[in-house]
């Protein structure tokens, strides 16, 4: 092959592949809005908050970012919104072990940011992130464990090292409190733990609360 032929192959071949990219770009841009909920004023304002505080300097979103702090794509599915709002404004007051600094976010900014995070959690990401195999495969054995999984308690609490780290460890929960305390705590956490950031689970059925309490009492 002569140098001229090699050069022409490079130039025209590259233009050809770039043209394909441009065509695919048009096609993709026409489709992405249908793969996500509508963008409201609050969602857009929340995206601007995301940029203002350079959140991507620590976190990832849609898996891209700085890998220093949790991915935010499904954040609103992992934690109650009331908790997240308070956390965004005063991270260490809500979770003393939190790494996140206080950035001076006000209530309106926090609400908009949550609207944005709610939007991103509903984007069709071709099933990413995949559900962890253990979470899918582990069978709940007692009725209490079924309730524990159903309401995703492990997103904040952990038992014997498995689960979230933002709320107290439940490995010894049964040896600390009695059944009455647990029932009261589920219905209205602040009635027994002042300043608790746990949301109320009073909407659960009486049977579910009893099963969950029984499960807590086995943790010793």
């Amino acid at each position: 092959m002569s140098n001229k032929a090699a050069r022409n192959l490079f130039v025209f071949g590259s233009l050809f592949f770039f043209a394909i990219l441009v065509i695919l770009t048009f096609d993709t841009l026409g489709k992405v809005d249908k793969r996500a909920p509508e963008i409201t004023a609050a969602v857009n304002a929340g995206k601007m908050v995301w940029h203002k505080y350079d959140c991507i300097g620590c976190h990832t979103i849609l898996g891209n970012g700085s890998y220093f702090a949790p991915d935010m794509t499904k954040a609103v599915e992992r934690k109650p919104k009331e908790y997240l709002k308070r956390f965004l404004m005063e991270p260490k007051a809500v979770n003393p072990r939190a790494t996140m600094p206080k950035l001076g976010m006000n209530a309106e900014e926090a609400e908009n940011l949550l609207a944005f995070l709610d939007w991103i959690s509903k984007v069709d990401t071709n099933d990413w992130p995949p559900k962890p195999i253990l979470a899918v495969a582990t069978k709940a054995e007692t009725p209490g464990q079924v309730v524990y999984q159903k309401y995703n308690c492990a997103s904040c609490h952990s038992i014997r090292g498995i689960g979230g780290t933002t709320a107290p460890d439940l490995t010894k929960a049964g040896s600390k409190y009695n059944a009455a305390w647990h029932m009261a705590h589920f219905r209205d956490p602040q009635s027994v733990v002042k300043n608790s950031v746990m949301p109320s689970f009073g909407h659960l059925s009486e049977q579910e609360l009893k099963d969950l309490t029984d499960y807590m009492l086995t943790l010793k």
């Binding site: 590259s14 992405v32 990401t125």
Partner: peptide, 22 residues
């Protein structure tokens, strides 16, 4: 450089797996 661009331009697709693109 030809092969860099023939593979690399559309190789951008590996960033479009999970971000809400088709």
């Amino acid at each position: 450089v030809g092969l860099v661009l023939f593979t690399g331009i559309l190789g951008i697709g590996h960033h479009y797996y999970w971000i809400g693109t088709p």
